[in-house]
C-alpha cells in the first residue's frame, strides 16, 4: 500500500500545549511540511518568540533559538548573516511582531534579510490572558477593551502585511487564513513558497496567518473559524501582497 499521509518529520509527535480549537498547531504543521518537502530540516534554524508561541522551540525537530519579546527577526538576522547556508525562520504572534517587535520586523524586511517570518495573527494577546493587540478588530472585546476596541483611542488594526509590502526592497509578503480547509491548502503552498524564496537565496519572506483564539475570544472552535471569516477578513484581505520581481508564485508555476 502507498503511504500518502504521515506526521511531518520536522515536527515532534508529542501533544502541543495550545488550547482546543487554536490553529497554531495547523500553522506549525504547514511550516514543518514545507521544511520536509524542501529537504531543509538539517539546515533549518527556527526562532521562537514570546507569547503562546514561546514553546515553538519544543515542537520543531530542528535547531532552535528562543528569542526575547519581539526580537526574533534580529536574532535571525544575526544568525543568517554569519551562516548564510542556514535556513532561518521566525515564528511570532501579533503582540510579539506587531507591537513590541515592529521595529525589528520592518528593518529586517527593509534590509532584505534572507529569512522567513511566519506571523500568527489572532487579534489578541493569548498567553497573558486576552488583552488588546495592535491587530484587535474595532469593537472587539478583550480583557483591556471591555467595551470593545475604540478606534478613536486605540487606532485601527495594524496591517503588518500591507506595511511590509509597501517597502521598496524586494520581498515576498502574503496573508493566509486558517478558517477553512481550502484556505489551509492555499496557505500551505504560500508558506512553502516563502521558504523557497530563502532556499533560492532570493529575498525576505513573510506570511501573515490569520489564526483563532477560542479561549480569549470566548467562542467555540467552530464559531472561531466563522469569526475569522466574518470579522477579520474585512480588515485583513488574503493573498500574495508582494512578490519579488513583480511575479506571483502562480505565474512562476504557470510559465
Amino acid at each position: 500500500m502507498q503511504k500518502i499521509f504521515s506526521h511531518p518529520c520536522s515536527m515532534i509527535e508529542d501533544p502541543l500545549h495550545y488550547c482546543p480549537g487554536c490553529t497554531h498547531g495547523i500553522i506549525h504543521r504547514l511550516v514543518a511540511e514545507s521544511i520536509d518537502e524542501l529537504g531543509i530540516r538539517e539546515r533549518a534554524v527556527g526562532v521562537s518568540s514570546v507569547g503562546c508561541s514561546v514553546c515553538t522551540y519544543k515542537y520543531f525537530r530542528c535547531d532552535m533559538f528562543q528569542a526575547s519579546h519581539g526580537r526574533a527577526p534580529a536574532v535571525a538576522t544575526g544568525a543568517k548573516r554569519c551562516r548564510p547556508e542556514l535556513i532561518l525562520f521566525c515564528y511570532q504572534g501579533d503582540g510579539d511582531l506587531a507591537a513590541i517587535g515592529t521595529s525589528e520586523i520592518i528593518h529586517a524586511a527593509n534590509r532584505g534579510e534572507k529569512i522567513t517570518c511566519i506571523f500568527a495573527n489572532n487579534a489578541v494577546y493569548g498567553m497573558t490572558g486576552g488583552q488588546m493587540a495592535p491587530t484587535t478588530i474595532p469593537g472587539q472585546r478583550t480583557s483591556t477593551t471591555p467595551a470593545g476596541r475604540r478606534v478613536s483611542q486605540d487606532g485601527f488594526p495594524l496591517p503588518m502585511a500591507e506595511m511590509l509590502a509597501s517597502l521598496r526592497t524586494p520581498g515576498y509578503v502574503a496573508r493566509v487564513s486558517m478558517h477553512a480547509p481550502s484556505e489551509i491548502i492555499r496557505a500551505k503552498e504560500i508558506v512553502r513558497r516563502a521558504f523557497l524564496h530563502q532556499v533560492e537565496d532570493r529575498c525576505f519572506s513573510f506570511v501573515e496567518c490569520l489564526s483563532t483564539c477560542p479561549t480569549n475570544w470566548g467562542l467555540s472552535p467552530a464559531e472561531s473559524l466563522k469569526w475569522i471569516e466574518r470579522e477579520m477578513l474585512p480588515y485583513y484581505p488574503l493573498g500574495e501582497l508582494k512578490v519579488p520581481d513583480g511575479k506571483t508564485g502562480d505565474e512562476d508555476e504557470h510559465n
Binding site: 528569542a67 526575547s68 526580537r71 534580529a74 536574532v75 535571525a76 544575526g78 544568525a79 548573516r81
Partner: peptide, 26 residues
C-alpha cells in the same frame, strides 16, 4: 567578515545573540 548597521541597540543585542548562537565570534 560581516558588518551590519542595526536599527537600534535593542536590535544589536539580539543580532549578536543570533550570531553567537550559530557559533561565530562576534
Amino acid at each position: 567578515g560581516e558588518y551590519v548597521q542595526t536599527e537600534s541597540e535593542v536590535a544589536t543585542s539580539n543580532m549578536i545573540f543570533g550570531a553567537a548562537g550559530v557559533g561565530v565570534r562576534v
